[in-house]
Design a protein around this nucleic acid. Structure first.
Lengths: 190, 190
DNA sequence: TGTACATCAGTGAACGCGCGTTCACTGATGTAC
DNA sequence: TGTACATCAGTGAACGCGCGTTCACTGATGTAC
């Protein structure tokens, strides 16, 4: 039953991608490895051919999830400049579509509180991704100094993540939309 | 071994208070009932004399945690008016002390992503508490119309929660402080 | 290039453990007369 | 007010279950000659 090198690499990628989805959908602790491997079309016994531990998968899945979000946002801004790019990024991030599909969205909003308790490597990955998101936003503020742009970008990122998280927590459709829309407007006017 | 009505009520309160702390410290799913009851000075068997399920405790502990945070912030603002009250609230919320003690702080930042997946009752409790926090902040913006004040308060709340969450996620002390300080300044200048 | 053998991806059973929940039991509290 | 009895808070063992991890096994892949 040994698989070719290419198949092995594909399987590994599939496990990471499945984990990135399932962790964001259900939470890290609440997602079991058996369930995860089943969702990836495998039995659980093979897991340790690819990873040393669940923790290692958490690190890699976190990195994959965050990279995908950064890429999506960056894609929404391609061909656009400065403020227009900012608007596109923020509109995408604070959309109801993003709110309603945590399994495919920003890991900070979906599993942020679990990431704050994760091991060193996972937090290092999260720190890098956050820095990239801030850089992307800072590039949109050209009318101010780079230092000021970075400050504004830090605030914008915090607002976006907090707003998306709370739009999912609250049980009131109107309030939820209002959180998203007002955060979007505020960043637009920064 | 039956306890008096007062002792029973005290025990129940103690379990809720312990849960409010432990859930914020370790996460909801990661906190077991045996461990929790032990931390409250009891054995696990007695749990179901007080609660129907873990879910019910989650609801009550969430309510207790959020009420305590709202109260603390409200306390920081007593005797202060408008912008001065805003500064006091935001300074308290975005302090390094708050960041470093999630078990005693805002549940949205500590277990927000788990609350977003919680049952109806817990989310209703969370929604009420968020609305109260927004009201408290809105009361600080008196130089604008009530509608505008509420909008600014929604944004301020999102920024505060997102900033506190990310200050805990990142693995870089300088970046962490920078997130808190810039969010604080931004809200001060709203 | 063909053959013999070592490697190892994936399977499925098993490990010890802790989970949420239930239950028989104890004995102090609360209540009815 | 005092007594008899019902209630029930808390204990600790047990329930079935799923957790993360390990392991013997299978058989196709990769490699050495």
């Amino acid at each position: 039953m040994r698989k070719s090198k290419q198949e092995t690499a594909e399987t590994r990628e599939r496990i990471v991608a499945t984990a990135a989805t399932e962790f964001r959908r259900q939470g890290i602790v609440a997602t079991g490895l058996s369930e995860l491997m089943g969702a990836a079309g495998l039995t659980h016994g093979g897991f340790y051919r690819h990873f040393d531990s669940k923790e290692q998968l958490v690190t890699e899945a976190g990195a994959a999830a965050l990279a995908s979000t950064t890429e999506t946002l960056s894609g929404a801004a391609t061909g656009k400049l400065r403020r227009e790019a900012l608007r596109a990024i923020v509109a995408k991030y604070l959309s109801t579509a993003h709110r309603d599909h945590p399994q495919a969205g920003c890991a900070f909003a979906a599993i942020g509180s679990e990431m704050a308790r994760a091991d060193k490597k996972t937090r290092a990955v999260a720190t890098d991704s956050f820095a990239k998101l801030v850089e992307m936003l800072a590039a949109c503020f050209e009318d101010v100094t780079p230092t000021e742009a970075k400050k504004q970008a830090l605030v914008a990122a915090s607002t976006m993540i907090g707003a998306l998280l709370m739009s999912r927590v609250v049980n009131d459709a109107e309030l939820s939309k209002s959180i998203l829309r007002n955060a979007e407007n505020a960043i637009r006017d920064m």
